[in-house]
């Protein structure tokens, strides 16, 4: 008796489940197909035989040429740099042609929290920048977070302990707001997101970038 009742229940459940499955297939497969089927989209739309306002083929071709020229002019004619922060790679262009590419390091996305009010996010900013200045043998003036990160007390603004020599490589190119393109002592981390927001490169790439990009050249970071 009990066995029969169970058989009936499972049969009932099987039928209901099967029915639900067919229903789901209808909703997720058949309806999207019907929505996308061409003949359903044939909506009556009488076309006039003549219409004013549409440009002629000649006008269209001329407009396209003019627009293409305008778009081409937007790409810098001189040298510019493109940095991909997701893959930690850079691409150096000169007169529209790629002259050098390689790996670099960009912001680590670490959010350093001192307390509830004060924090820093080590992220490389995205957008269009330009080279504000170029220096050789740069000196790093350590900001507050560099001390906080190491568990050290923050010294006064012009304290000698804030200055570090030889850690930024041979050259540095400033992007403004304290962000630099510079070298590194930690070459094994190149290609990884490990910086505090600056862009690090190896010595040869940095030299090429330094020599190619004049002050004012565009740097696109994405």
């Amino acid at each position: 008796m009990k066995k029969e009742a169970w058989g009936g229940r499972s049969y009932f459940a099987g039928l209901a489940g099967g029915c639900l499955l067919v229903w789901m297939c209808w909703i997720f497969a058949v309806v999207p197909f019907l929505k996308n089927t061409g003949f359903l989209l044939t909506v009556s739309n009488p076309y006039p035989e003549e219409a004013a306002g549409m440009p002629s083929l000649k006008e269209l071709s001329a407009d396209i040429k003019s627009l293409q020229r305008k778009l081409e002019r937007l790409t810098p004619g001189g040298a510019y740099l493109v940095v991909n922060t997701s893959e930690n790679t850079f691409f150096l262009y000169k007169r529209g042609e790629l002259v050098r590419n390689g790996i670099c390091s960009t912001g680590s996305y670490v959010r350093l929290e001192l307390n509830d009010e004060k924090h820093w996010v080590f992220e490389t900013p995205k957008g269009a920048f330009s080279i504000r200045g170029k220096t050789t043998a740069p000196v790093w003036r350590k900001p507050d977070w560099a001390f906080i990160e190491e568990g050290l007390p923050v010294p006064p603004a012009n304290d000698p302990s804030r200055y570090e020599y030889g850690v930024l490589g041979d050259y540095a190119l400033s992007l403004g707001d304290g962000y630099l393109i510079h070298g590194t002592l930690y070459k094994r981390f190149l290609g990884l997101p490990v910086t505090h927001g600056c862009i690090r490169m190896n010595d040869e790439d940095l030299e090429a970038v330094y020599n190619t990009l004049p002050v004012g050249a565009k740097v696109f970071i994405y």
């Binding site: 996305y109 670490v110 959010r111 350093l112 929290e113 001192l114 996010v121 992220e123 990160e149 568990g151």
Partner: peptide, 12 residues
């Protein structure tokens, strides 16, 4: 933004 939260160390 794949942020990694890090608390500032109290000392060295």
């Amino acid at each position: 933004q794949p942020l990694i939260i890090k608390k500032a160390p109290k000392d060295t």
